[in-house]
Design a protein around this nucleic acid. Sequence first.
DNA 1: CACTTAAACGGAGGGGCCTCCGCTTATCTT
DNA 2: AAGATAAGCGGAGGCCCCTCCGTTTAAGTG
Lengths: 212, 212
Amino acid sequence: MSMEQILVVKPPENSEPTPSAAKGMRADARRNREKLLEVAAAVFSERGIEGSLEDIARRAGVGIGTLYRHFPTREHLVEVVYRREVESLCAAAGELSLSHAPDVALEEWMQRFVGYIAAKRGMANSLRMLVNTNSELFAESSGMVSVALRNLVEAAANQNLIRRDIDSTDLLHALFTIYSIPDAPDWHERSRRLVKLLMDGLRWGAGAKRAP
Amino acid sequence: MSMEQILVVKPPENSEPTPSAAKGMRADARRNREKLLEVAAAVFSERGIEGSLEDIARRAGVGIGTLYRHFPTREHLVEVVYRREVESLCAAAGELSLSHAPDVALEEWMQRFVGYIAAKRGMANSLRMLVNTNSELFAESSGMVSVALRNLVEAAANQNLIRRDIDSTDLLHALFTIYSIPDAPDWHERSRRLVKLLMDGLRWGAGAKRAP
DNA sequence: CACTTAAACGGAGGGGCCTCCGCTTATCTT
DNA sequence: AAGATAAGCGGAGGCCCCTCCGTTTAAGTG
């Protein structure tokens, strides 16, 4: 019913000094910026990338003017939200490593990765567009993700918890494949199972066996 | 400064019976539809594909509701305008054939073709998008254009006014090339000259010579 | 602490999108 | 020609986008 509006971005004018979270910001400004990002993430994920900016400002308890001062265009906002989500996903890799055995950390992280992707279904087109027209953003984020995954894989392999002949790039590719599972009510379940399957494959033939 | 908004089109729901210019339309309805298309063509060409629909309705002297009844979405409107322009371009081929010598008709038509393309610069991206996501539209229009060109070429070749070893597809390709001439104030001049050059090439070695 | 001041705020305002529905009017009937 | 009846009209209204600018306030300064 509603058509899809896509934003092809004169890449958010990366030339101009992005009004990013510089340090010398007034306290209220930093607070508002943070709150806006938090709310924006929520709104984008529930309404899609086209969610109302006024709604975001409203829910964040700031005026619309404030939103626009911090994020001059919708694309700026989307980009920052996206970047943060990727960053936090990658940060989770490190945290999981500290609190779990390497293979468990890997599995859990893959589940989160898939969950993240799942959340982005629906705005697939919009995001693809954003990422297509902002190659820098794409390079950075996909770089971060593959580093995170590689670290997890290596840690697990070094302890012989998974086979050692695994190229983490292939694994990433396999994870992305999930994206193309056709829509269905049980999409999430299917993808969880797929990750488990992948994980079994990884554990097979590993030197050490884990307790049952 | 202003970002480009692009419409990725759930191909204008070609499934539903396009409310096209059916015959059993009330006279006023047909009048309004026609006027809207005329004005829309003007507005799109001067403001780009994102020109205001309310403006179009206003200039056409109808209510905004009327515009939306005839063209449920912007994409519908754009598509119909586009289709008509292509049709009229192709129709011009036939008319030129009747009123001019075949080689002159060919040259003149190529000039118009280039002029048409020139007019669409600036909304290149938007149009590409429209056409990319609506393969049927693309197929039809590019089909029509190549048929028109082929007819002109054959007619001229049959009278030995241009060389006979010309593939009209190549010629079309050459015409499209003009599209990639970098922007410049004299864009239009350059392209005219290019068409002339092409035409000289076509005439070279033709059997019959025209009066000087 | 006052006091200053530039940074930050916020919302009114002008314009656009699209829908909905009460009012017109072209066309058909008799 | 008069009446009936849908087809068609159009604009008010709700929501959104984005800018502009008068007002507030955090954070230095003496």
